[in-house]
Each structure stands twice: as C-alpha cells, then as structure tokens.
Design a protein around this nucleic acid. Structure first.
Lengths: 186, 186
DNA sequence: TTGTTTTTGTGATATACCTCACAGGTGGTA
DNA sequence: TACCACCTGTGAGGTATATCACAAAAACAA
C-alpha cells in the first residue's frame, strides 16, 4: 500500500486519514506467473493497481492470434475498462508474466471512493489524460510507421521492457509476426 | 452553450448557478471550412468543445502523408492534449472540414474550473474513460484486422460519417491508401 | 456558364510483411 | 541428469497493401 500512496501523492497530497480511507477500499492479492486476473467471457468486478510485477493485457482474435494491448507493470492501473464499467463480460485477458503483487478495487468501491472523496477524481482524471495521450501516440505510430520504426521507438521509449519480455511478445505488441521482428533485430 | 449544458447533464446534473459558472470559462467562436484551430509548431492554449460542425485532427509525417486521428463533431472534446497539458508546441493539426461552432477553454480556465467546481472532474473523468476505451478498440482493430474489416467496422459504427467525409479522408483515418480503399468499396 | 480543384476508380508494378517449415538454443523441472 | 516447453533465427514462397500513372466525374469558384 506504500507504493500506492507514493504513486497517488505524485499528483495529489493526502492526509493520513484520507489515505487510510483510500486503503480501506483496496484488497491486496498475490498472483503467480501465468495466473489470470481477467479471463475472456468472465465478469470483471475489479480494477487493478500493479504494486510489483508484470502482466499482459491481450485480445485473442478469431484465428487464435494474440494481440497485446499493454504490459502493465509497477505503478500501472489496468482492467478491461469496457467490461468493468458496463458490468459486461470480458473480451480481453489480463495475465501475469511475472509473479505480481496487485491492489484490487471493485466497481462499487471505486464508485464509492470517488463519491466520498471527490478529490481522488482529480488524480484519476490526470491518469486518464496521460493514458489518452499514450494511446494516441500508439495509434499514430501504427498508422504512420513501419514495423522497424515502431520497434526502434519502443526500444527508445521502454528500454527496460526488453529485459523482461520475450521478443515473441514484443512482436505481438507491435503488430508484426515474430519472424519479421527477428529479421529486423539482426 | 445550450448544447454544452445538455451534454454535461447527460452525466452530471447542474444548478443554474453552476452552469453559468461553467459557461463563464468558455468563449464561443465560429470557424469556416479550412480554418485551423491548432497548427503544428504553434502553442495550444485551448481545449475545444464542438457545438456544431466537423473537424479533423491529424498528423503529417516526414514524407508529407497525413494520418487522421479523429473526426471531432457535435459533442466532442478535442485538442492536442499533449501540447495543451504540457504547454509545448503542437505536433498535430486540428482543422475544420465544415463551418463549425466551437466552445473554447484555456488551460488556466480549465484548471480553475476544476479547482473551483470539483464535481466537474467527475464529468471529465467519465469522458476520459470512454475515450480510453474507444482508443483501445481502435488499437485492437489496427493490430488484428485487415483494411477491409476495419472499413466495415467503421461503416457499422459511424454510418453518418460517410455522408460528411470523403473516402480519401476515411482512408487516411483507417490507415490505408485511398486506392486500396477504393478497391475495397467496389 | 467556364475553368479549376478535388475526388474517385482502375491498371501495372513494387514491396513490406505474413505464413509455413525446420533447426538450434535456453531455461525450468522432475 | 534428461526431458520438455518455449524462444529465436532463417529460408522459401505467398499475399495484402503501397506506389505511380492516368482519366473520368464531381464539387467548387470566378
């Protein structure tokens, strides 16, 4: 929970009381490599904050191919936002690539927290805005760059990721086949 | 401004006083077809709400090709969020495709509005979440679908757009050449 | 109206990337 | 130790889509 406090206070200073109120809405869980936090077809009662570890958020298409939306890691918020917010079934999976320590909040607690502590909405709005900017950059890069350039951008932007994620998975994030990515690297 | 009130009240009920406080932060402007709201290299002092009209938000790459990020129309919020939030120069253009009626808010007014009327952050957070979900869907569609399928999805999702936007522009939104899109249509 | 710009369709050719197939390497585990 | 799952590289061939070129149609401006 310390991690969460530091994370929120980068944007929003908190009193002890406020922080313990926030804390009371989360539950801490440990997951092993390979464990699913969200599985396609299931309900998505929770949103997750990654305190430690690494996950993949991905969609499996009709032909069985995976497409990775994100690699949530330390200090990331993630869930299937569509399913979470509309109480529908998940269309994407969220799975651990490493053993992870996760803070979980249910939709009810999320709504209640926002209602009882309105200033937390300021924090979430800042996060959402940053996320929107990042998504837009990714769309632009998919629209305008070749696989090679996208790979270079990724390396420049998230150099640490290479140490934690296989090239096969990076390929699936970049939107190229692993064979093509392999040929680019060399 | 009526438009704005109706739009906000879909999510957040307002008193007369609250609404006129909100209103006081915006200025209404009319733009002609072809006018720029944001131009690459310039500062981006404002965020925009489209009351009436149609715009394109686009990036021009090194080779001179345009890539369209969005077609902001009635009830859309748009700006170069990165440049707006960080007070840096625009990297993307925002231009009118039709004569448009726009409500503008400066960064200072935006920050002040959020500070003085915290419940408005609830509204913006809801909008930002919806935007994040939409961006994610688009990334998925770029990662997993062929140009043909992306085009069909677009038609199913935004049928009205076809009446207002040329196929050349649609191609640039979908990430295909206009020639390829033309061959798909037939 | 007439001239001008923009849009659209279509052929021919080029290319980035995909798929399939196989082999060697690496790391975990029983 | 031996096995197995996964990862990585690389060749051969196929395909979706890009690019270039041209002409007709439509929209716009004078």
């Amino acid at each position: 929970m310390k991690q969460l406090r530091r994370h929120i206070e980068e944007i929003l200073p908190l009193t002890e009381k406020e922080f313990s109120f926030i804390t009371s809405h989360f539950s801490k869980q440990h997951f092993k490599k390979g464990d699913y936090l969200i599985e396609v077809g299931q309900a998505v009662p929770q949103m997750f904050f990654v305190a430690r570890g690494l996950l993949k958020l991905y969609y499996t298409d009709e032909s069985g191919k995976d497409h990775i939306l994100s690699f949530p890691r330390e200090d990331w918020w993630e869930t299937d936002y569509l399913a979470f917010n509309t109480k529908t079934k998940a269309k994407i999976n969220l799975q651990c690539l490493e053993a992870s320590e996760i803070l979980c909040i249910t939709l009810k607690d999320y709504q209640n927290l926002r209602k009882e502590l309105p200033k937390i909405e300021h924090f979430f709005l800042e996060k959402a805005t940053a996320g929107h900017i990042a998504s837009q950059q990714r769309i632009l890069s998919l629209l305008s760059s070749t696989a090679e350039v996208r790979y270079e951008q990724l390396l420049r932007r998230y150099p640490a990721l290479l140490q934690r994620v296989s090239k096969t998975l990076l390929a699936s994030y970049l939107g190229v086949s692993r064979e093509t990515l392999s040929r680019l690297s060399s």
